[in-house]
Structures are given as C-alpha cells and as structure tokens.
Design a binder for these strands. Structure first.
Length: 460
RNA sequence: GGCUCGGUGGUAGAGUGGUUAUACAGCGGACUGCAACUCCGUAUACAGCGGUUCGAUUCCGCUCCGAGCCUCCA
C-alpha cells in the first residue's frame, strides 16, 4: 500500500516516501493566538490530523509539529485595544485553541513550538542569511533579497517580473527590490522585542517557521501543510530563507488545503464572515463539525452552511444507529488494513469522501450480514472511523445525549416508553400513538423491534 | 494585468474515455396495529460550442460564469 499525496511544488500526486525510512516529519502552520479560531482555521487542523493518523498506521515514527505564533502585529494591536498584556492574550487564546481543536477530535501534535521560545534560532538564521549574501540590513530592518535566489517563486509559480507587474502595495523605500521581505524589524519601546545584532527588534512573519523547523525537525522535512493562501508569500518565503541558509530540500511534499466558503465567498477575518468553532460547538457536537469538514476532499472548496452541518449530523446519526444495532457484537481484530477500500481511498491523497462512502457500504452490509460476519464488519467500520476521527463514541450515548438542558430527560422518556408498551398490550393504540407523538414533538424518535423499543434524539 | 483552480442530478459530493460512486431529501413497495428502523425498487447530472475518437461528463480548443493568490489571512 503506497501513500500518494498531491505535492503543490510539482502540481501532481506523488508516491510518498519519507527521507528517512519509516520516519516522517510533518509541520503544519498553526494559529496566531490573538482571537478565537474560526471553522476555516479548523479545516487544515482536521485534515492534517487525519493525515497524521494515516501516517501512523504505516510509519513507526511520525513527528508532527504545529506552531503557535505568539508574536505578531495583530497580537500587539489586540493587546493595545484590550488594554491587556501580550501574555494574557496569547495564553488565553492558546488555551482556547487547544480546547476547540480537541473538541474536533484532533490529536495533540507531537510538538507545539512557540515563536517566542525560538528567537535565538531565528536570529541565527538571519545572521546566516546575511553572511551568505541573501539578506541585508536597512534602517534597522533586515530584509531578504529575493533576487539573490535563483528560483524564487517556484512554489507559487510566479516570477519576480510578474510580481512587479502586479504590485498593488506601496513599497517601503528601504527595500532594494520590491519583493524583498522582512526577516527582522525594529520593535517600539512598548512592543515586545529581543536584543539582536540589529538592535531591539522582533522577527518577521516568515522567519519563525523556517527557524523552528530547522530547530525541531531538521533541515529537510517530509511534509509541510497549511491553507492555500499560505502558498504565497508565506511558504515561498520560508523556502527562500531555508534553502538559502542551509541548502538542501527544505520540504519534500507541500500540501495545501482549499478554504471554506460562506455563501460562495471565502470565509476570512477581513471579510468578517467568520463563524468561530466555539460558537458552532454551542449548536453542533465537535464530531459533526469534523465530519462536515471531511465530507469534501481537502483540496476542494467546501461551502459551509447549516445544511452541510445538518447533513453531517444526520449521516453520523445513521452510522451510530448502525453501530448501536451491533452493540452486543464482538469486534473482530483480524483485519488487514491494506485490503480495505476505505484505507486505499485515504492513501489516495486523503480521499475522505470515498472513505466515507466505503463506511456506508460497510454499514449496509452489517444490516444484512449473518451473525457470524458481523464482528468483522463492525471492526472494519470502527477502524475506518478511527482513521477519520469519528464513530468512536458509545452509540447509545451519541444517540441519546441531550443537546440542551431543557430537553426531556432520559428517565421521562423511558417512563413514557413503558406506558406506551402497556397501552400497546392493552390494544389502546390511540394512547400509544399519542405518546409517540408527544415524544416526537420533544425530538425523540422511537424504534420498535422484537427486543423492545429503542429511542434516539433527532436533530430537532 | 500576472498566476492558479473550479463549473456534476433537489442538496452535499467522488470519479471515469464505453458498464449512469455515495449520502441526505423524493417517489413506489415489503415489514409494522400505525409508525420509526431495516430491506427491495425508482426518477432527476456531468455550463455552452467546436475538435480528437468507433465512442467523451472524462482528452484538446474556444466561449460564458464563478472563486482564489499577487496585501494580514487556514
């Protein structure tokens, strides 16, 4: 079973082979911690979490790093506006980010480097770039000289000439070339800053990833991921910094997820059309959000809407109902992952929609299969769910969990079910139906079977 | 202006040079006291126009429409 991944650098799917056999290094751009994560920010987290799970099934050592950007203009602005310290902001939102992402069933990354803990390597990297003639100091800034690099622009497939033609921004006068970008900039007295050979200052945006990757993962890593909008300038500039400083490959496989749309428009902070994960979690369980994010391929835009979430919830309810039906069935562990269609789908550039379709196929089989085949089918469904980060909860709890405090209690529901059972035995069908309708109005659906009556809460 | 990427049935969403994924919703039927669950069956697609081909939703070209990046952004 070979894993294929779409590499942004080559524009094609490639067979994934780590640099060092059986060992994978992966880095994903994490949050700038100055506000709550929105659901668009959650997409790469869920996507690369799924990849992390998949990689762990076939490589014995997988190191997954996701950074925390805790020094940045936006954080400084937020501190100023809120009249708060930088640390209180970054601490608060780092904690909330972790909580929100955990709600989406994402595993903690192996490493979570903070920019402010890695200032030394950033300064060292900047020094190296100056020494090698790729960077220069001007008016207290240190800038990367883009024309000192032969193939600058390769990842985003653009040339320096193109960029000049399309320049829409006023160019700072201390730049030798309009495309030059800041490695280090002076810090105002009141802003966070660190002593450096160029005076008190702070790092430019792109520097931290290059420095931290080198520091924690090595000069060449296998996978670097993030949203599409990071391709340029962020990842392009990371490449420039790292390749010019250390030579070598820097990143072997570049992966970029498409973004979430809202009403056909990109969801973004600047457009103001964001929905925070925290808000959505008030209405939908994390697993529903996760499922919705995985219901489209990661390289396709996903139009995020209430109906997408409701479909996700309905689908998960259906799959959990299937699992409840086989609750008493043992789980057969003798399964060969490589033979599984869902596994093959995930190995084909993380084709989660196909993997989900394969789960449906298995669910359909479970209903029809003779008892002796059920343990194997159940095991396959659960294994697929484990890779996708879904279907691992207790089915009964999933289906009967109250979504709000004012919902009818389980005890009340069960009392009514008993009463209905008695009414049915007495052939008092009018009363039996009345009870069912009463429960239905409360969002509870009854399912009669030979073994008795099951119930679940619908998405009312 | 430069560089990308899309337009698939009511909705979501894969995929393929020829046997109409998948799910939800719909319709018909079985089951049921009636339902629900489950099962069986079923309708509705590949933006438009050309080209290549025995054959194109799939390849090529053009047109139309849409999105993104080029500035902080997942």
């Amino acid at each position: 079973m070979s894993l294929k991944l779409y590499n942004t650098m080559s524009g094609a799917k490639e067979v994934f082979e780590p640099l060092v056999a059986d060992t994978v290094t992966m880095y994903v751009c994490g949050p700038t911690v100055y506000n709550l994560a929105h659901i668009g920010n959650a997409r790469p987290v869920v996507v690369f979490d799924t990849l992390f799970r998949l990689l762990q099934t076939q490589f014995s050592q997988v190191t997954y790093a996701r950074n925390i950007t805790d020094v940045d203009d936006k954080i400084i602005d937020a501190a100023r506006e809120g009249q708060r310290s930088i640390e209180s902001i970054t601490d608060e939102f780092t904690a909330k980010y972790r909580e929100d992402m955990a709600q989406l069933n994402t595993l903690a990354p192996t490493l979570e480097p903070h920019a402010t803990h890695n200032i030394e390597p950033m300064i060292a990297l900047t020094l190296t770039l100056i020494e090698k003639g790729h960077a220069y100091e001007a008016q207290g800034h240190v800038l990367f000289a883009v024309d000192s690099m032969e193939d600058y622009g390769k990842l985003s497939n653009r040339s320096l000439d193109d960029m000049l033609a399309g320049a829409r921004v006023e160019v700072a006068d201390y730049k030798r070339h309009p495309g030059d970008f800041v490695l280090w900039k002076p810090a105002a007295e009141t802003d966070p800053g660190w002593d450096s050979p160029w005076g008190r200052g702070r790092p430019g945006w792109h520097l931290e990833c290059s420095a931290m990757i080198r520091e924690h993962l090595g000069e060449t890593i296998d996978i670097h991921g993030g949203g599409r909008d990071l391709i340029f300038p962020h990842h392009e500039n990371e490449i420039a910094q790292s390749r010019c400083a250390h030579g070598g490959d820097y990143v072997r496989y570049w992966m970029h997820n498409a973004y979430l749309d809202l009403d056909g428009e990109k969801m973004s902070k600047s457009l103001g059309n964001v929905r925070t994960v925290r808000d959505l979690l008030q209405v939908y369980r994390g697993e529903v959000l996760r499922f919705a994010l995985l219901s489209a391929h990661y390289r396709s835009p996903l139009n995020f809407s209430a109906s997408v979430l409701e479909q996700a919830e309905t689908t998960l309810n259906g799959l959990y109902s299937t699992l409840r039906d086989v609750q008493g069935t043992a789980v057969d562990t003798g399964m060969l992952l490589a033979d599984e269609p869902f596994y093959q789908a995930l190995n084909d550039d993380l084709n989660t929609p196909i993997a989900i379709a394969e789960i449906h196929a298995l669910a359909k089989q479970v209903h029809k299969a003779p008892a002796e085949e059920k343990p194997a089918l159940k095991a396959r469904i659960l294994a697929a769910g484990a890779l996708l980060g879904i279907l691992q909860q207790d089915p009964q709890q999933w289906l009967q969990g109250a979504s709000s405090d004012d919902a009818i209690s389980a005890a009340d529901i069960e009392a009514l079910i008993v009463e209905r059972q008695e009414a049915k035995l007495a052939k008092n069908y009018a009363r039996a139906d009345e009870i069912r309708e009463e429960l239905s109005a409360a969002g509870v659906v009854l399912e009669d079977s030979r073994e008795g009556t099951q119930w679940k809460r619908g998405s009312d």
